[in-house]
Structures are given as structure tokens and as C-alpha cells.
Write a protein that binds this DNA or RNA. Structure first.
Lengths: 226, 226
DNA sequence: CGACGAACCGACAGTCCTGTCAATTCCGCT
DNA sequence: AGCGGAATTGACAGGACTGTCGGTTCGTCG
């Protein structure tokens, strides 16, 4: 057996603090997302890593500090991914659709992000208030949306009076619900959110809902259809 | 001091099993909503009542059974309240607005309902699946919405092709987000969801979003404007 | 090659929490 | 009055979990 490996996660070399830290963070993300802050067990996190519980306290000083690190990484994840969007070259209508689509798909691909934010709200937002960089980290999305709105208004395709933060909230809300509540809603109303056709349908519906909300409404029904 | 009181909650008589049970249920609702299933402490629930921890195990056999009872009551609460709506005498457009408005206001007035459902989803919906009557309990809302949709289509004010469950999900999603995520979203984007003007604005926006989604779109923009 | 400090580990102390039990009080009925 | 059973209580057993500590290993740098 090779004693040294090429730096991938599965066979990383021992005494690699960067990798250990990342390993713990990854494991903790899974555990906190699955069980929440109170439900998560530091022991369970340790078992998901190649290290021990003592190492977790060595790298992160407490369970809560680890949780804050996990939450910050989660926010960084979505905001970074959003920066990969290139909306500037799209007509406003398509830019809106792309933004909605991206958000919807991101939540679906990263339910742990949704779960972590849910957990934080369950704690009354006690921890996010102690995270220094978190507000600056999240500023980008509002700018992105404001840009699209301004351009669409110049184009004459989007109406005036839409607040960027409110649009962000609307887009988030529509995509959020079926991830955050998939277990209760799915069970009560027999909706299978794992089914690909259902997901497609929901994505299309949400894009439509948002479009109907932001489109310019003055023209005699020109844009009302579709 | 009077040894007997008139049966209200504050001064209920001792040895009143009905009242004790209700007292525990009420206290447990608060605790589970505030801290989730794992975060809730049976001791803390007991302290919120006029009884002791042992009584909780006497009336409900376990923490989880108590939690299930609380969750069922919470669902019953919103479904019962919905039955108080009288949508049949309203034109479909107003019926939709009333439905959205009601849902939005209910979530605002009963954040503990939102919190409990959030908690249940955090547990993967493990408990709701064991609740016998819960599905039947929730059937009413879909019927209500289906009725409004059918009537609106006959009136010619609502378009065809809107699925009742999907409309329910859309309405719920839009109202849900700002309650479920008020701490994170409120902090990150400096939005005060306790401010009355903000709430009014959000209610109006959500009504508009839903209306634009369900309205008949064929007529040349007749209904597109406000 | 030797020493130093970072990385790592096993075990333990202390606390908290759930669920149970034996014993007691109280109400309603005879 | 007193009996039977429901309601209520305090205390405890048992288990689980967090955070810490003393000691050990290992890479690196002089």
C-alpha cells in the first residue's frame, strides 16, 4: 500500500493540517445539515472524518465555532456560484429566467445549504450575527439583481417599481419551499420531489411566476401571454 | 385567597386532567417551536406548565409522542382556521386574494406553526409519517383551492391549467419564506419583518404575484394591469 | 542528527437529560 | 366514613454528550 497519495481526499497524507481542517468542515456540513445544531453530535462528525473528536476542538475551538465556519462556507458557496452566472449578455427576460433557474437548481443540488440556513433560523439567527464577513459576502446577489432590473427597465421589458431585495426574496421563496418542506409537503400531498418530471415542471412554473411579476405590464397584453 | 377559580387557565382547579393535558400541550408547542425537537427540553416544558416532568410522561408517554400531538394540533389549527373562510360568495379574483392574504397573515400570527413544520422537516418527516389522521386533516385546503380555480375558470377570470396543489404550494412558499427565514434574511438584507409597513407591502406583493400567475391571460391585456 | 513545535490521540471529568418508580394525595362514589 | 382509582410528586438510575488534558508521534529546520 502506498503511504503517500496524490492529495485527493480519499488517500490524503497524514499530518496535512489543511486537509484535516477541510475534512472536518466537510463532515460537519453534512452532520449539521442533517440534524441541526442541537441534533448534531461532535462525535458523529469525528466519525465522518479520518480524525478524532479532539482534533475538532484543536482546529475549531468549539462546536458552535465549527458550526459558524460551516455556515459561512455554505453562504460563500452559493454566492460564489452566482458569480459564475453571466447575465449581462442576456436580454433581461432571459436573465431573469436564468437567475430563477439557477437559484432553483442550486437549492436542489445543495439541500445542505437550505438545511443549514433553516437550522440557523431555528436558533433565532443567534450565530449569523456573530459572523463578521457574512453580510459583505451576501451583498453581491442584490447588486446582480439590481443590474438586471435596471437593464430590463431601459429595455422596456421589465416594469419599474420592483425592489431588488424583494425580487431576491420572491425568487428564493419559490425555490426554497419545496426543498425546505419536501418531507412534510411531499408526504401530505403525495408529491415526489425526487421525480425529474416534477422538478422540471416546478422549475418552469417558478420561472413563469417570477416573469409575470416583473414583466412590463403597460403594453396591451403583448407580453402577458406565454 | 380563593382556593377554587372559575376554570380559566390562569387559576384552574387542581386535579383537572383535561386542563393539565391542554396546559402541557400549550407549553410544549412553545418549546418545540422555539428549539426544535432535539433542542427542546422536557424539563423546560414542565417549567412552562403548572405540572412536573413526570406528569408529561403520564399524559403523553414520551417526548416524541408529545411532539407528534403538538404537530397534529398545529396542523389542525391552520386547517380549521381556513374553514372559517367564506370564499364561495366572492368573485374568483377576490377569493384568490383572500386566500393568499389569509395564508400570509396566518403564518405571521402563528410563527410557531411554521417553526414546528420546519422542525419536522429537519427530522426528515420521520414523525409525520406515523400520524394517522394527518393526511385526511390536510385534504381540505386542496379542495378549497380546487373550488376557487374551477369557479374562476367558469367566470373566465382564471386561466386553465393551474394545478390546485401547485397553487397551494406557490401561495404557501411566498408567505412561508419571510417567517421561516426572517432571522437570516432579515439580518443579511436589513429587512425588519416586525415593521408593519413592510408586512403590508409584502402581503400586497404576494397577492399580486399570485394573481399574475393565475389570471386568465388570453384577453388582450385586459387583466394584465392592476 | 537532534530538538522543537505542530499535529494527533485516548481517556476522563463533569454535566445534562430522559424516562421510570415507589409513594402520596385527592376526588367521587358507595 | 372509607374505599378505589386516578392524578400527582420527588428522587434516581442510566446513558449520552461536550470539552479538556496529558502524553505521544512526526515533520522540519538548524
Amino acid at each position: 500500500m502506498a503511504k503517500r497519495a496524490t492529495g485527493n481526499a480519499a488517500m490524503r497524507k497524514p499530518r496535512d493540517p489543511e486537509a484535516s481542517r477541510a475534512d472536518i468542515l466537510r463532515a460537519a456540513t453534512g452532520e449539521f445539515a442533517a440534524r441541526g445544531l442541537d441534533g448534531a453530535r461532535v462525535d458523529a462528525i469525528a466519525r465522518r472524518t479520518r480524525t478524532t473528536r479532539a482534533m475538532i476542538y484543536y482546529y475549531f475551538k468549539s462546536k458552535e465555532a465549527l458550526y459558524r465556519a460551516v455556515l459561512e462556507e455554505a453562504y460563500r458557496g452559493i454566492r460564489e456560484a452566482e458569480k459564475g452566472l453571466d447575465l449581462a449578455h442576456l436580454p433581461a427576460r432571459e436573465a431573469v429566467a436564468e437567475l430563477v433557474s439557477f437559484t432553483f437548481d442550486y437549492y436542489h443540488a445543495h439541500p445542505e445549504f437550505v438545511a443549514l440556513v433553516v437550522a440557523e433560523n431555528q436558533s433565532g439567527g443567534r450565530h449569523i450575527r456573530r459572523m463578521q464577513r457574512i453580510r459583505r459576502l451576501n451583498a453581491s446577489i442584490v447588486d446582480t439583481i439590481a443590474d438586471v432590473l435596471a437593464r430590463g427597465q431601459r429595455e422596456g421589458t421589465l416594469r419599474a417599481g420592483v425592489d431588488p431585495i424583494e425580487l431576491h426574496m420572491t425568487i428564493a421563496a419559490l425555490g426554497w419551499f419545496e426543498i425546505a418542506n419536501r418531507h412534510t409537503f411531499g408526504y401530505l400531498f403525495k408529491r415526489d420531489f425526487a421525480d425529474a418530471a416534477t422538478v422540471e415542471r416546478d422549475r418552469a412554473r417558478i420561472i413563469d411566476v417570477v416573469w409575470q411579476y416583473v414583466r412590463e405590464r403597460g403594453g396591451a397584453g403583448a407580453d402577458a401571454r406565454r
